[in-house]
Structure formats: structure tokens, C-alpha cells
């Protein structure tokens, strides 16, 4: 036993202790919330044996992507090649960005699939409702209907090869019910390319998952009670790559004369329909979950089922009817909270 040996032991024990420390801290989670697309968006990234700074950088880049999609899809602020500019240049071919092309080509077919209920050409109608809310008067049915115009989304010409779009003269688009879901998909693709295995993105009414936490094979998502912010209807388990979206009468609305009018407007009448308290959809693509929750909210349950059958995506749904009954697909596994007042059909 000599000094050399003793120092060797001490050094090796220090190395071991730091190794232990390293192993105990190897699962890193970074999360942040930012206000984008009129909602708070939370991005949570889970890293294994990865530098935390790197993870934070990736997260910030993901937020940037969401902001980019917002700017490219908004109808309210004009940027070169975005929806607002396209609305200005209606009636002619106009060069737009790639993100807009993809959102348009995904959402236009839903006009026919929903017999006109899901309509992206409602920019003017939405503006009427916003104005009406500010001035506190209820728009008449005629006013809402007239704002839609005679053209339908089917009349939009999307020239994918030249990145050009031609809007009909009497139509302006609003991608409010599409771009959030699209942005989620885009962020997920980016995260996959950045070698992130586990992530959860919560955009309020839309949630998308990538992978699952280290210790289980699902993400636990609570669904808020459509009538009370502080209560939870129940929890669902989301697997890798699943996207969930909800549309409700009471989550976002126009308040006129103390009455609440859902912000989801029928593409046929330009008026809200209050068929259900809320509709929740689980599928495997963000944009589809976003479009589908809106579409199902406007369709009867029977027509909704028909729409789902026509799609190539696995879809699970849950309706909360106005009389507080719940109708859901067989594969929609929800664990109700104890104080839940709703009842199964």
C-alpha cells in the first residue's frame, strides 16, 4: 500500500461518483410555453444522454417553425406569398409559399367530403362575426349567408408544380381550422430530423405526440370538461405519433348580447351550429385531427361516421351532446374522472 495506490483509489472513486451523478441526470426534459396562433403552445422535449443546451436550441427552433407557419398561413397580416396576400390577389394566379400549397391541397377536398360544412373560404364571414362581436349585434342569417359568395373551395385552382394558386374573385380564405394542425405536423417532422425521439406539443385544442416517455408506452392526456376550465372530463392514453384535437362550443366563441356563439361556422350557412358541446378526435396526423374535429362538429353523427369511413386515417371520436350524454367510437379509450357528470349513451 503506497501513496500512489491511495490517490488512484481516490481518483477512481471520484470518477465513479460523478458517473453516478451523470446517470441520475441523464433523462432531460425541456419545456416552454409561447403564445403563437392565438393560443398558448407548449413544447416539451425529452432527451436521453443529450446536451441540455442542444435540446433547448431544438425547442426554440421548433417554436420558430410554428411562428413561420403562422406567418405563412395568416389572413390578417400580409407577407409575400401568404394567405392574406393571396386574398388580395384573388382572381389571378399568385405565387404562394409551399406550406400554403400543402394546407390548401389537404383541406380543399374536405369541402366536398363534408357536403360544404368545412369551408376554408370563410374569411369574410369570420370578419362579419368579429365585427358583430365588437359592435355587439347579432348578424342576420342573410348577412352571414351572403358573405360566403357563390364560389366554393372547389373553384380554387392549386398549381402545385409552379407554386401558384388562383382564388375565385368572390372568395377570401381563412385557414384558422387548418394551420395549427399543419404546424404540429411540420414541427414533428423537424424534431424527427433533429434526432429527437420523444416530444409532446400542446397547442391548446390540439396535441400531438412523438414517441412515448421512457417509463411507459403512452402519453397521458387530460381532456378538459367543455363547460368548466377547472374540471377534467377524463384522461386518454396517446401512443407514438397520435394527434388529438377537440372542437367545442364553449372553448372559443363570439359573445354577443351575453349569448355565446361558437367560432366554428358552418360552410353552408355562415352561422354557428350548436349540435354538440364538444367533439374530440384522435388520429395520426395533426392537420387531419384539426380539420376533422371541426368537420365532425358541424356534421350530424351519422354523416360524421360516413366521412370517417371515406378517410384513409384511423380515427377515434368522442361527442359530448347537449344533453350531457357521451357518444364515442369503440377504440376511444377514456378514463373518466371521478367527479365527471357526463354519462355514456
Amino acid at each position: 500500500m503506497n501513496v500512489k495506490k491511495l490517490t488512484l483509489i481516490i481518483i477512481s472513486s471520484i470518477i465513479f461518483l460523478s458517473l453516478i451523478y451523470f446517470y441520475m441526470n441523464r433523462n432531460i426534459v425541456v419545456a416552454q410555453t409561447q403564445f403563437i396562433m392565438n393560443t398558448t403552445i407548449e413544447i416539451k422535449l425529452f432527451g436521453k444522454n443529450i446536451d441540455k443546451q442542444k435540446l433547448v436550441k431544438t425547442m426554440n427552433r421548433a417554436f420558430d417553425i410554428m411562428k413561420e407557419v403562422e406567418d405563412k398561413s395568416t389572413s390578417y397580416v400580409e407577407y409575400e406569398g401568404n394567405a392574406a396576400s393571396l386574398n388580395k390577389h384573388r382572381g389571378e394566379y399568385y405565387m404562394v409559399n409551399q406550406d400554403l400549397i400543402e394546407q390548401l391541397s389537404t383541406s380543399i377536398p374536405f369541402y366536398k367530403l363534408t357536403s360544404g360544412e368545412f369551408n376554408i373560404g370563410l374569411y369574410r364571414t369570420v370578419n362579419i362575426w368579429k365585427n358583430a362581436t365588437d359592435k355587439n349585434y347579432l348578424p342576420s342569417r342573410e348577412e352571414a349567408l351572403n358573405s360566403i359568395g357563390n364560389s366554393t373551395p372547389d373553384d380554387i385552382i392549386v398549381d402545385k408544380f409552379n407554386n401558384r394558386v388562383k382564388l375565385p374573385e368572390d372568395m377570401e380564405i381563412d385557414l384558422g381550422g387548418v394551420s395549427k394542425g399543419y404546424a404540429l405536423d411540420k414541427v414533428i417532422v423537424f424534431l424527427k430530423n433533429s434526432n429527437i425521439d420523444i416530444a409532446l406539443i400542446n397547442a391548446g385544442g390540439n396535441i400531438i405526440t412523438l414517441g412515448t416517455p421512457v417509463d411507459r408506452d403512452y402519453f397521458n392526456i387530460a381532456i378538459q370538461d367543455p363547460q368548466s376550465i377547472n374540471k377534467i372530463l377524463g384522461t386518454v392514453k396517446l401512443n407514438n405519433g397520435q394527434a388529438i384535437a377537440t372542437s367545442g362550443s364553449y372553448s372559443r366563441y363570439y359573445e354577443i348580447n351575453g349569448e355565446k356563439y361558437s367560432h366554428i361556422l358552418s360552410g353552408n350557412s355562415g352561422y354557428p351550429k350548436h349540435l354538440y358541446k364538444s367533439v374530440t378526435v384522435i388520429t395520426n396526423k395533426g392537420i387531419i385531427s384539426d380539420i376533422l374535429s371541426t368537420s365532425l362538429f358541424l356534421l350530424s353523427i351519422e354523416n360524421g361516421r360516413k366521412l370517417i369511413e371515406k378517410l384513409d386515417y384511423p380515427v377515434e371520436f368522442l361527442y359530448i351532446l347537449n344533453d350531457d350524454t357521451i357518444i364515442k367510437s369503440e377504440g376511444f379509450k377514456i378514463e373518466y374522472s371521478q367527479d365527471n357528470l357526463y354519462k355514456d349513451e
Binding site: M1, L6, S13
Partner: peptide, 20 residues
């Protein structure tokens, strides 16, 4: 397990040097 190995060895070496 880890601490038994570490501290066991340290105590062992100390005892060995005392015994020599």
C-alpha cells in the same frame, strides 16, 4: 452495491496498510 464496493475497498486498503 456501488457504495459497498467503493467504501469496502477504501476501508480494506486502510486496514491492509495498518496491518503491514
Amino acid at each position: 452495491i456501488v457504495f459497498s464496493v467503493l467504501f469496502g475497498l477504501i476501508i480494506g486498503f486502510i486496514s491492509q496498510s495498518i496491518l503491514t
